[in-house]
Simulated assay, not measured.
Amino acid sequence: MASAQIFDARFITRVGTVAALYAAASLVTLLFMGSLAWGPVQFRISEALCALALLTPAAIPGLTLGCVIANVANIVLSGTGALGLLDVIFGSFATFVGATITWKLRRHPVVALMGPVLANALIVPAYLPLLLQGIGFYTIPFTGISLDGAWVPMYLFGLVTTGIGEAVIMYVLGLPLVRALSRTAFKEAESANS
């Protein structure tokens, strides 16, 4: 009984820590990189933390909660209003799916990190055109193609740009992060409890 309570306390602590780190990193990205955190071409630095799902199942609810917090904060900061709820719901769902895939495939880290790449590349571009129009983007970046009535080209554009951005973040930042953490007590403590 006591060990179950300790595990629960550790698990909840890890969930909260991951959520806080993800939300803070997302907001710092927004402040310093502007629309690169939420725009049509995305390099959300906080997504590197999705690699934590290789080390602990607590990363799944932690990343999801952190994404919800960051996306709600973005509604306030960017003024997206009710349209921002699309990102709160579907963006957070993409993070949940990606982290779950990463945890399930954790024995193959390079393959597992494709979970967040695929989840974000497939889900985020589906609602992004609506959100972008709501905040003042009216053309597909670098193309001059109007977003109005161009959902398929915008989805394909987002599929490529979001996928590339996520892959860069996961493999350039996330993989080294998790390799460094796997040599610490963080990994050892999780291994004892799995």
Rank of each mutant, 00 (worst) to 15 (best):
F96P: 00
W151N: 06
G115E: 11
G144K: 06
W103S: 03
F43D: 02
D148V: 10
K187A: 14
A150G: 06
A189E: 15
A167P: 08
G79H: 07
L85D: 00
K187L: 07
A37Y: 04
L65V: 15
A25S: 10
A53F: 06
L131D: 03
D87T: 05
A167L: 14
P125L: 08
L156T: 14
L52A: 09
A121N: 11
S78V: 13
S182N: 12
A99T: 07
F43P: 04
L85G: 13
L83C: 05
A119V: 03
I164D: 03
R183L: 07
Y22M: 01
G84S: 10
L113V: 01
S182T: 01
F186N: 11
S3C: 00
V110A: 11
A59F: 01
T162W: 12
L177S: 09
F32S: 10
I145V: 15
V152P: 01
V168W: 03
G98L: 07
I145S: 11
G66R: 04
E188Q: 15
G39L: 13
V97D: 08
L21Y: 01
Q42H: 05
R10N: 11
P57Q: 06
K187D: 11
T80M: 15
V111P: 00
L175A: 08
L147W: 04
L77F: 13
A4R: 15
V41K: 10
N193C: 10
R44G: 06
G165I: 13
A70Y: 02
V18P: 05
L65Q: 02
W151K: 11
G39H: 13
W151V: 13
G115V: 05
S46W: 02
P176R: 12
L181N: 08
V172H: 02
V124T: 12
V88K: 06
A9W: 10
P129T: 00
I101T: 02
V76T: 12
F43G: 04
T64R: 05
V168G: 08
L173M: 12
I89T: 10
L21C: 11
G158H: 13
L21Q: 02
G98E: 04
R107T: 14
S26G: 13
A126L: 14
V28E: 01
E166R: 02
R183K: 13
Q5R: 13
P61K: 07
P40I: 01
S46R: 04
F142W: 12
V97H: 09
T102S: 03
P109Q: 05
C50R: 00
A37N: 10
F7W: 13
L118E: 08
A51T: 00
T161C: 15
A121V: 04
M1C: 05
A150Q: 10
V111N: 05
L36Q: 07
N120G: 14
D148G: 06
E188F: 14
A25D: 01
I164A: 08
L86M: 13
T95H: 04
T143F: 06
